[in-house]
Design a protein around this nucleic acid. Structure first.
Length: 433
RNA sequence: GUGGGUAUGGUUCAGUUGGUUAGAACGCCAGAUUGUGGUUCUGGAAGUCGUGGGUUCGAAUCCCACUACCCACCCCA
């Protein structure tokens, strides 16, 4: 218990954090190019924010939220998603009175959902996401979808499918809902138990059922895209021509329904076909009614969330030459080995000089002998070792050793930092060329 | 929530029909003469055998319960 992470959570160890950082760097570059600014919202919110936005009929609200009462008697929920919090912040701070459209992104945002963990499924996972407020035209949807695809592509992930659909708006969806319900009732006896339950809660979700027998019955079910009002139809057509113009290939999946209730018009998913089956890397869509639902003016919005753990897991399935994520190494360039503790001050001074030149440097902090220090330097992957013994100290030099070639030479304490720096830069250039 | 699998040193695993001080590999630490790593050799540290009951002269091994992890379903990122 004491040495075990809670179910469904994960430590990110140093071997992993570098990859997260690389991904975060890439995300910041790409979002900056697209005019999105970072926003950070609290890890917990008032429960009502989620019941209102995500929706009472969603699985998230019905059975997956980490909800508790704080000492002040408030009902608090650890955020199961971030859009609602961003909308809340957007309204609360009056950002909706500023220039619109307003574009935000959030990064490494922890999400909590009480689910049964399995591959690609955690109780705490992290998302990167974007939200764009005040733009109702389909080009905003297209921009966001393109951004999601471009980011994955920039990491080397190209073996994914883009699925899109339109789930209509408050004008056309009720009519469709009626038509669908009418159809579903006619097939009620042939559907699975989950589906008959879903009929009462949110009939659209029946379309999402994976049970083959249900899918067979749903083949002739009325489709939302056939019931779209003129505005929604135009929007969806417009989106498709924009995606085509952007060179994106996509599939219209008429069964695509999102689990959150606030979506309108566009919904999309970017799906990875992993060994065990499809896994959604990115999911999002338009939520034109959400800002108003949370108590603001009628402002349209569109956004997506990208599961960072899932993206990195997908990256693991790619071969080395497919990956493009640039991970910065923190392996020391040089390790300083003082032969005796009495030489530590000199070694320390050299260490700081190296670092001030931008060289990744480390030194011995134990009372180990030279041999053990070399072993350690080798294990951590240092390119050079600086040996500082009595002989060297008296001459005012250090002995430098190239750990790969075995070459050794002496340099004065004053010259050594620059010499090491030059050598490292040269070898980096060779590696890059 | 439902179903299946697993649980032995830091890691990956062996442990025969229950039988003495529970093993290996890798890793870790140290040594193989005087100040030198990656190879080799030698030695060392390290395990409440997931937890709690039960059967037995005796349980890592059999039985029961619980817990955790992995996988699938549901749903999602």
């Amino acid at each position: 218990m004491l040495t075990q992470v809670p179910k469904g959570t994960k430590d990110v160890l140093p071997a992993e954090t570098a990859r997260y950082q690389a991904m975060e760097t890439l995300i910041r570059e790409k979002t900056r190019l697209a005019g999105y600014q970072e926003i950070r919202t609290p890890v917990f919110e008032h429960t009502v924010l989620f019941t209102r936005s995500v929706g009472e009929s969603s699985d998230i609200v019905r059975k997956e939220m980490y909800t508790f009462e704080d000492k002040g008697g408030r009902s608090i929920t650890l955020k199961p998603e971030t859009t609602a919090g961003v909308v809340r912040a957007f309204l609360e701070s009056g950002l909706h009175n500023q220039a619109m459209p307003a574009k935000f992104y959030y990064l490494y945002s922890p999400h909590f959902r009480y689910e049964a963990p399995q591959s690609g499924r955690l109780r705490e996972h992290h998302q990167f996401g974007v939200e764009c407020f005040g733009a109702k035209e389909a080009s905003a949807d297209a921009e966001i979808i393109w951004l999601g695809m471009d980011l994955l592509r920039s990491m080397g992930i190209t073996d994914v499918r883009l699925l899109i659909n339109s789930i209509g708006c408050p004008v056309c969806r009720p009519t469709y809902r009626q038509a669908l319900l009418f159809y579903l009732h006619s097939k009620k006896d042939l559907l699975c138990g989950d589906c008959t339950d879903r009929m009462d809660i949110n009939p659209l979700r029946v379309l999402d059922c994976k049970v083959p027998s249900c899918q067979a019955q749903l083949k002739d079910a009325p489709r939302m895209i056939d019931h779209l009002c003129d505005e929604c139809k135009k929007h969806f057509t417009s989106l498709q021509s924009l995606l085509t113009a952007a060179g994106l290939t996509y599939t219209v999946d008429t069964g695509l329904v999102r689990g959150l209730d606030y979506y309108t018009k566009t919904v999309f998913e970017i799906v990875s076909d992993a060994d065990h089956g499809p896994l959604t890397l990115t999911g999002g869509g338009r939520y034109d009614g959400l800002v108003e639902e949370i108590g603001g003016p009628s402002i349209p919005g569109v956004g997506f969330g990208m599961g960072m753990e899932r993206v990195l897991a997908h990256l693991d399935t790619l071969s080395v030459d497919q990956k493009k994520l640039h991970v910065i190494s923190s392996v020391p360039d040089i390790y300083i080995a003082p032969l005796d503790r009495s030489l530590a001050p000199k070694a320390f001074h050299l260490l700081l000089q190296l670092r001030s030149l931008g060289v990744k440097a480390d030194m011995n902090h134990t009372s180990r002998g030279l041999k053990a220090q070399f072993k350690y330097a080798n294990k951590i992957g240092a390119s050079f070792v600086a040996i500082l013994g009595e002989e060297e100290a008296q001459k005012g030099v250090v002995k430098l050793r190239n750990m790969q070639s075995g070459e050794e030479w002496e340099a004065t304490l004053a010259d050594a930092p620059q010499q090491v720096k030059d050598r490292i830069e040269n070898s980096n250039e060779e590696a890059n060329s």
